[in-house]
């Protein structure tokens, strides 16, 4: 006979905890939310105020400088298509969300990655938390985000940051730990302080790996920003979401293709930025 063990009240416990947090700290998170939403709105308006062709030209130029003429040409054509499909405002909105989320994710992830690389104790705490953050299905973060940050873009970017930060942390830590031991020793032998060692040797040498992490963070942000349309984030995800609700497959695909184009441009450009300088001069 198997004794019947009553179900543990895990869900209830989490709800209670979240309610308590909402009641007591939501004034802080609401203030933060206010600040971020001003930032997002300002940026979106600013970018939309510029004529689309100017932005498109600027992106193509950046792509050419960072990744060569192929990527530049692809970006140019892709963005012109988006403009033509009347998806320009939605694209700008999505891009802004990705940009803000990525900046926050990197601002959090870089120091945490450095910490995890330099201290085994920190790494022992951080790594399991990262596993948790990454394996938890992405939309679960959306639910509690709303009471803290309200419906809309800010909740979306908070959930996005939680979802997209781990690769930056992980690969920053990996990049630093990968620096060959004899280079660390050389730095020590010449009397470097810990700070000098970090900024003159470890971080510069970790840049390619670290940028691969940032690249992944950007890609994850983009995928999350689309999901976040469910809580009113707008942008291209919003277009998809409306198409689903109204059963308009054509419209849905248009927006889907727009997301793919945006993803490819962001990916190709950021991939190249992290390459080592010698690889750049070689070509």
């Amino acid at each position: 006979m198997i004794p019947v063990i009553p179900k543990l009240p895990l869900a209830h416990g989490i709800d209670v905890a979240l309610d308590w947090l909402t009641a007591h700290i939501s004034f802080v998170t609401k203030a933060f939310s206010h600040f971020i939403s001003i930032l997002i709105d300002g940026l979106v308006h600013g970018l939309l105020w510029l004529p689309p062709w100017l932005l498109i030209a600027a992106v193509a130029l950046l792509a050419w400088r960072a990744a060569g003429w192929r990527v530049a040409l692809g970006s140019l054509l892709g963005l012109l298509l988006l403009w033509n499909l009347r998806l320009w405002p939605a694209t700008v909105e999505t891009f802004t969300l990705v940009l803000i989320s990525t900046l926050i994710a990197v601002a959090i992830g870089l120091p945490l990655g450095i910490l995890a690389a330099l201290s085994t104790r920190a790494s022992r705490v951080v790594m399991p938390v990262l596993d948790f953050m990454q394996t938890m299905p992405a939309f679960v973060y959306l639910i509690p985000a709303i009471p803290f940050f309200g419906l809309g873009a800010v909740s979306a970017s908070v959930a996005t940051v939680i979802f997209a930060t781990p690769p930056t942390i992980r690969l920053t830590a990996l990049g630093i730990r990968q620096v060959p031991k004899d280079l660390i020793e050389a730095a020590d032998a010449f009397g470097s302080t810990r700070r000098q060692k970090l900024f003159k040797v470890q971080l510069p040498m970790a840049v390619p790996t670290l940028m691969a992490g940032v690249n992944q963070t950007i890609m994850l942000s983009l995928s999350m920003v689309v999901i976040a349309a469910m809580i009113g984030a707008g942008g291209l995800g919003g277009v998809v979401w409306r198409a689903i609700q109204r059963l308009e497959p054509g419209k849905g695909f248009e927006a889907g293709i727009a997301i793919v184009i945006l993803a490819m441009i962001l990916d190709r450009i950021t991939q190249r930025i992290g390459r080592s300088p010698s690889a750049k001069t070689a070509k």
Binding site: D182, L183, A186, A189, P277, S278
Partner: peptide, 12 residues
């Protein structure tokens, strides 16, 4: 100061 067997130069 020290000179290393495998040079240990900073590649960047």
């Amino acid at each position: 100061s020290m000179v290393f067997q495998h040079f240990a130069l900073f590649p960047h």
